[in-house]
Simulated assay, not measured.
Amino acid sequence: MPDKNKYSIDLPIVVALVLLTDLFILIPELAATPIRTVLGLPMVLLLPGYALIAALFPAKDDLDGIERLALSIGLSIAVVPLMGLGLNYTPWGIRLIPILASLSVFTLLMCLIAVYRRAHLPSEKAFSVSFDDVYKALKSPFSTQPESRLDRILTIILVISVLASVVTLVYVVVTPKQGEKFTEFYILGMNGKADNYPTQFTLGDTGQVIVGVVNHEYEPVKYTIDLRLNNNSLSIPSDVKSFSLEHNTTWEKTVIFTPNSVGNNMKLEFLLYKNDNLTVPYRDLHLWVNVTGGMNATL
């Protein structure tokens, strides 16, 4: 008698979806289509958990269909962040390709284990899903002989709710949303890090820092930068003084300045203005600097 388990379609479908998702992410022409998102959702939210459940519970009597589906979603939500946490401590980091590779290898490996474990069970005890099972499952909520009219109504409502949730989730993912509008403004030392700032000067010396601006305003913005030492403006080049940025673009330049007064713990301010509003700074940063002069300098 042929082994009924070999005709199970659930694991081949999982493998096919994993490989198809890989193609739609790795091939640039396919990655530009909305199908990538449609395939990516089950790749993250369903397939890893389903493959793990199939490997852990190969027998038909271990779990019923609803329990398998619910646990598949729950375990997927648990497994994927753990993979991301693990990748964070590897040289590859949390990037698209390492995450895709990890999810694919994990899911395919669990499918192989599930196939192996099911094959070592009697065919009548191994869990399997056939086309007939899928057809009956889809048809049963709408059958003409439900247990009661109330059960039929509740089942139909449940099916519609699940479909509406899936459609809503897909819409939310594929539709770009405008997030919070803001501008990043930062200063770095010449080593490219947030330390080793120039703070000790002799009058006439120059200092250098890296100033960066990132536009997250969802529109082009004209920025103006002003450097002030104890509320006195310092001279800076015109290409640093004023510039425009498109949304989601970064501006970063080395700014050279020369303190024009002597004192201790003086406030060196980096002021950023947005568009033509030069009255109130949009963002501001500062350093505390010391400037020494000659014998007659006032400290």
Rank of each mutant, 00 (worst) to 15 (best):
21 T>G: 14
60 K>Y: 14
290 N>W: 10
23 L>E: 03
175 T>A: 05
183 T>Y: 00
104 S>A: 11
254 T>V: 12
218 Y>L: 01
67 E>H: 05
169 L>A: 12
89 Y>P: 09
293 G>W: 01
171 Y>R: 07
15 V>I: 15
296 N>I: 13
151 D>P: 00
234 L>P: 01
262 V>N: 10
238 S>K: 15
3 D>E: 10
82 L>S: 10
35 I>D: 06
205 D>F: 06
185 F>P: 00
3 D>H: 09
145 Q>Y: 08
192 G>S: 04
135 Y>H: 12
217 E>P: 00
79 V>N: 01
198 P>M: 04
154 L>S: 08
49 G>R: 03
206 T>I: 01
121 L>C: 00
40 G>T: 09
156 I>V: 10
265 N>C: 06
211 V>T: 09
49 G>I: 11
24 F>R: 09
206 T>G: 07
125 K>P: 00
45 L>I: 11
210 I>Y: 06
12 P>G: 05
263 G>P: 08
138 L>C: 10
43 M>A: 14
249 T>D: 03
116 Y>H: 06
61 D>L: 02
212 G>R: 02
42 P>L: 13
159 V>I: 12
92 W>S: 06
58 P>W: 00
194 A>P: 03
255 V>N: 05
168 T>M: 07
96 L>D: 08
252 E>Y: 09
240 V>C: 09
236 I>S: 02
259 P>M: 02
112 L>K: 03
117 R>G: 04
